[in-house]
Design a protein around this nucleic acid. Structure first.
Lengths: 205, 205
DNA sequence: ACGCAAAGTTGCACTCGCTGCATCTTTGAG
DNA sequence: CTCAAAGATGCAGCGAGTGCAACTTTGCGT
């Protein structure tokens, strides 16, 4: 069987907690809602809340401890002969399409992070954790030493920025144009470099 | 006169609090020390601590609320006709040399951030706040719209990563080679792009 | 079906970070 | 020397987050 009752119930409780957290945070602001409120709304005890999320912010952002970062898997799925930047581009596109498909709750989360810096901070922290793992994988692929060679860390940081910015603009512009377009532009920019004259506007005059 | 007694005392208290925080955090770990400990060591009441720093972590990192980000000033000092990447390169070099000169306490802080993720997170958050301001300045220089054009945000994110990585490697390698060398390499990489074959090792075979 | 071990939930007591408010002390200008 | 403003402090309180010791539920072997 795919999952025992136990697993299913756990997953359901986690979803209930996280979506209650998002909903209440939107209504009352992240500081206007207590862990107790969230636990009540999800029908569990406050103490149980902390068995699922280590902080209130994590619940709002839907970050569960010890779940594997999807992006790392996306990168591992890329063929080994791809160049680092192309592999990261593929990873970014995969991550973006996953994000594009899950709709409303993601949007609510994005707006919350825009309005409440504390959440943006938590999210940025999450990204930087993942960055380290990605850099290690790029180092492995290229045979470089992640502690001595700047390249792996640098290219990963740039790639993550490209993804993050594309997602941000996608949200900012009402999710009209597909994320993949902006991701493509950003990675092209990274591939060819920031040299003089390479600043291209998204709105051709 | 340069500063009244009041101002001097305030500055002294802030320094006392921050360096007590660093010292105690190194001895007992950031979680092993309470705000009360820090306040006692600095000879003020716990309540007064919060008149100087808004969180314990900020005290350890020496982040005082409402002090102007030096890096933004560094960027504003660059000649207006420089290309975005060159201006950011100049800014990074200025920031690095400032950091290179201030000695022991900075090193202690760096090691603390390496060993305790929570502090690294706080510091990363600090960086991302500054990034937004820098991106706005680059947008102003280039006449682009920071909300519609990825370029300003992307180039700033890449530049900050280049700086951050250079500083990290400088610390990691025992502060032997000057930071400026690695910064130069990283910005060269950004200028010419991450295209295939551009991965260069710091240790030529 | 049944019983038992493991996994999960809960209540409790506690520490600590952080805040608002009212009060007292110190500073510096006239 | 006086007095108003700035700063320091004590107090009372909220809420996040943790460890521990019951208690309940699940699922497996029999």
């Amino acid at each position: 069987m795919s999952a025992g009752l136990r697993e299913r119930k756990k997953a359901e409780t986690r979803r209930a907690l996280s979506s209650a957290a998002v909903r209440l945070a939107r209504e009352l602001g992240p500081d206007g809602v207590t862990v107790e409120d969230i636990a009540d709304a999800a029908g569990v005890s406050p103490r149980t809340f902390f068995n699922y999320f280590s902080t209130k912010d994590d619940a709002i952002l839907g970050i569960s401890p010890s779940d594997p970062p999807d992006m790392l898997n996306d990168l591992l799925d890329r063929p080994p002969d791809e160049s680092p930047l192309d592999a990261l581009r593929g990873m970014a596109l995969a991550a973006a399409s996953r994000l594009e498909s899950t709709a409303d709750e993601q949007i609510a989360r994005y707006e919350l992070t825009q309005q409440h810096p504390a959440l943006a901070i938590r999210r940025a922290a999450r990204f930087s954790e993942v960055e380290r793992q990605l850099a290690e994988e790029i180092a492995r692929r290229t045979g470089l030493d992640v502690d001595r060679d700047p390249f792996p860390t640098l290219v990963v940081a740039a790639a993550i920025a490209a993804l993050r910015i594309a997602v941000g603009m996608w949200n900012e512009t009402g999710r009209a144009t597909p994320i993949s377009t902006v991701i493509g532009d950003n990675f092209d920019q990274l591939a060819t470099g920031f040299d003089v004259g390479s600043a291209r506007s998204a709105v051709p005059s």
